[in-house]
Amino acid sequence: MVQGIEDVARAAGVSTATVSRALRGLPNVSAATRERVRSAALALGYVASPSAASLASGRMRTIGLLTPWVNRWFFANVIEGAERTLRAVGFDALLYTFDISREQPRREVDPGVLRRRVDGTLVVGMPLRDAEVQALEDLGQPLAFVGTGRDDHLTVRLDDHAAGTRATEHLVALGHRAIGHVSGTPDDHHSWSPPNARRAGWADALGAAGSPPLPGWEINGNFDVPGGRASTHTLLDAHPELTAVFAASDEMAMGVILAARDRGLRVPEDLSVIGIDGHDLGELVDLTTVSQDASGQGAQAAALLLELIAGGGSALQVIHPTRLVVRGSTGSPRSGDA
């Protein structure tokens, strides 16, 4: 017997509208409810929509998932959200990683490994060159992005400029004007990339406050804790006048806090620190952050990609909201330091 959305709603104890929102990865559904709905759908063998039902035959039932890393917070959470959505309709994820490091350029995306193995491709947080995008398009299958992607493709992301602006404005409101920035990877020059957009938000917010950033107030932190730590030492050696640091990710922000501790600086009395993400360990280190729902972005991107595979879907840019979470790593600068 084919199970319908009403059966899933009854099993999960929610409305059919909530079932639809949960399985499509849309916001305003709690994590607990989303998991309960997905578990019920999986147990009942429910296919999320009539369009998704057309995927049941003649398909590989697999999505190619390209990502730089699987062990960093944003990427791990996006992948987890995408896989949950895919499993709910009987799809698998074929994972390929492309390490981005300081020492060597990453290898080129080879579409040949995906040909006749997947029904579509989801690129997670990895800037691609135009030739690589074209090579994936040439597969003749739907292509979607999470976190970073061109305006002419389905992309689920933040308003990264707004997130960088919001983080910097929080520090400005506390009285800081000498605010350093630990950015992301150095080889991503696209204007639509998250590191560049967050950097622009930082610069614009400081400019609006009448204190445009000075040359040298920005440094690459490679989106990890060691990079954030090492880069902060270099930054503060050159610019000891900085009273605050905005890091483009929480993991780099944690590295900033470690560097401050190395130098005998108190956070936030001597140095305020803010990040972006909403990392699970942020509360443990009392980190102020601009929080995002990475798992929800992965779930929604996977659901929308499935709609594209089934011949539906229309949205190109889906912007997820952020939330400022104020904790103990930010405070007013010492008198005379602002």
Rank of each mutant, 00 (worst) to 15 (best):
I309D: 00
A205V: 08
G227P: 08
E307I: 01
G336S: 10
T234F: 00
T62A: 15
I319C: 02
S20P: 06
P226S: 06
L44I: 04
N71M: 08
A17W: 00
E6Y: 05
S183A: 14
L26C: 01
G140C: 06
L143H: 06
V267K: 05
D250S: 04
H176Y: 15
S249D: 15
G275H: 06
I257C: 11
R102M: 11
F74P: 00
Y96S: 09
R61Y: 06
A247S: 13
R34T: 06
V273M: 07
Y46R: 07
A43W: 02
H181E: 01
W73G: 00
D237C: 12
A200L: 09
G228Q: 03
T185R: 13
A53W: 15
T16G: 02
T33M: 08
R157N: 12
V245R: 11
D337G: 07
L158K: 01
A244M: 10
A205F: 01
G58I: 04
L23I: 02
V19I: 04
L206R: 05
A248Y: 04
G147E: 10
S329N: 10
M1Q: 09
P68M: 06
R323F: 00
G227L: 03
G264N: 04
D130T: 15
S51V: 14
A144H: 08
A338P: 08
R38C: 02
L65S: 02
S183E: 07
R72G: 03
P195V: 02
E283W: 03
I63F: 06
R266I: 03
R102H: 11
D293Y: 13
R21H: 04
S272Y: 08
V14Q: 12
T288Q: 09
D188E: 09
A93S: 15
R150A: 13
R38S: 11
G298F: 02
N222P: 01
E80V: 07
G140S: 05
S20C: 02
S191L: 13
T288I: 07
W69I: 03
L235P: 09
G313W: 05
V133A: 02
H181Y: 15
E241C: 12
P212S: 07
L305G: 04
H233V: 12
G278H: 09
V14W: 01
L305C: 05
L265R: 14
T165W: 15
R38D: 01
F74N: 00
A53N: 10
H239D: 07
H170I: 14
G275W: 03
L324Y: 09
A163C: 14
P50K: 00
L26K: 11
T155L: 10
F145G: 09
L94W: 08
T85I: 01
G164E: 11
L139I: 08
L281S: 10
